[in-house]
Amino acid sequence: MALRLIRNISSSADLDKLKNERAGPGEAYRPTEVEHIANVVTHGVWVIPSLGAMIFMVYLATTSLHTTVAIIYGLALFALFSMSTAFHLVSYTGWLGDWRIFFHIGDRAIIYIFIASSYTPWLILKHFHSWAEEVLFVVWVMAVCGILYQYIFHERFKWVEIVLYLVIGVCPALVIADMKESSGIFELSLGGLTYVVGVFFFKSDGLIPFAHAIWHCFVFVGALFHYYAVCVHLLLSDQL
């Protein structure tokens, strides 16, 4: 597999040969072989570390509430990289081919869960002037609606998918600014900005070589900013 990848890259003087044509309306993007491998690797390498990250958060927890939010966020982090890797591996190898659509829907749906889980530690552990519990409820309701959309309208209205991701990801940030004590705002903002910029590449499949793999890298970097913020400004702050 590695030798075949090297041959493909070395024989491709034109970068356009490293990407497929743009997918049509209602069609799923079909990466080239090298893009497939890049998609698998860029999230696959974080599956085990993300599990270790969850265990470390649980280790840092000093209360039952800390443990609860650590598990919620940690499991979502692990599920994000695991489902993404599983889908891209199935797509590339053809293993469990009949389950490809299931994994594809799951890959997109888990993003909604991850967004909601990323806000959950802050909305539960931080002190707000108002609306934290209501926003937490709305975030998870929106995540469920996004998942239902994926199962009902998968690949039919792609612009709706992007709007839902951005609305769920950006709107709750308004109440985050209402925190009584603002530690962690910088890392949260930096992570959120990383995700938003990465959306450009998420929608550039078929236009930019390795666009989806680049999106994967933005996801990892954004998650790293948020993970650091949860550990330092939520789980460790009570111990200082």
Results as ranks from 00 to 15, higher is better:
198 G>A: 09
221 V>T: 08
114 F>D: 00
65 L>S: 14
43 H>K: 11
100 R>A: 06
183 S>D: 13
225 F>K: 11
111 I>A: 01
83 M>R: 09
183 S>A: 14
158 K>E: 06
69 V>F: 02
35 E>G: 11
128 F>T: 01
95 W>N: 10
153 F>Q: 06
118 S>G: 02
64 S>G: 05
9 I>D: 06
212 H>I: 07
131 W>R: 13
58 V>T: 08
88 H>L: 04
147 I>H: 05
11 S>F: 12
232 V>K: 15
212 H>W: 07
66 H>Y: 05
44 G>L: 03
117 S>T: 02
182 S>D: 13
41 V>G: 05
198 G>Q: 12
14 D>A: 02
124 I>L: 09
225 F>E: 01
92 Y>A: 15
190 L>D: 07
86 A>Y: 11
181 E>K: 12
125 L>H: 01
30 R>W: 00
34 V>W: 00
76 A>C: 03
43 H>F: 06
3 L>F: 12
188 L>Q: 07
98 D>T: 15
201 F>V: 12
153 F>R: 13
157 F>M: 15
151 Y>D: 00
81 F>T: 02
20 N>L: 01
121 P>D: 02
71 I>S: 10
123 L>H: 02
206 G>S: 11
189 S>K: 12
72 I>C: 07
164 L>Q: 04
12 S>W: 05
120 T>K: 14
116 A>T: 01
166 L>Q: 02
94 G>R: 12
75 L>Y: 04
201 F>D: 07
47 V>Q: 05
222 G>P: 00
212 H>D: 01
40 V>T: 05
196 V>G: 06
178 D>N: 15
35 E>F: 13
55 I>D: 06
197 V>K: 13
201 F>A: 09
6 I>T: 05
23 A>T: 01
240 L>I: 06
142 M>N: 08
48 I>A: 12
190 L>A: 15
216 H>N: 12
108 R>H: 15
137 F>P: 00
147 I>T: 08
104 H>M: 09
154 H>S: 02
40 V>C: 11
205 D>F: 07
67 T>K: 14
18 L>E: 05
178 D>V: 08
216 H>K: 09
118 S>L: 04
220 F>L: 10
214 I>Q: 08
73 Y>A: 11
179 M>C: 03
66 H>V: 04
202 F>W: 15
196 V>D: 04
57 M>K: 08
69 V>G: 00
56 F>S: 03
194 T>A: 13
119 Y>H: 06
172 P>F: 11
92 Y>K: 12
182 S>C: 03
92 Y>N: 10
172 P>V: 11
25 P>N: 09
89 L>T: 14
187 E>H: 13
176 I>W: 03
63 T>G: 02
225 F>R: 09
137 F>S: 12
2 A>H: 08
201 F>T: 11
199 V>H: 10
239 Q>P: 00
168 I>E: 10
164 L>W: 03
237 S>A: 15
163 V>S: 10
24 G>N: 10
237 S>F: 08
96 L>Y: 14
28 A>I: 03
234 L>T: 01
171 C>P: 00
30 R>L: 01
129 H>N: 12
135 V>C: 04
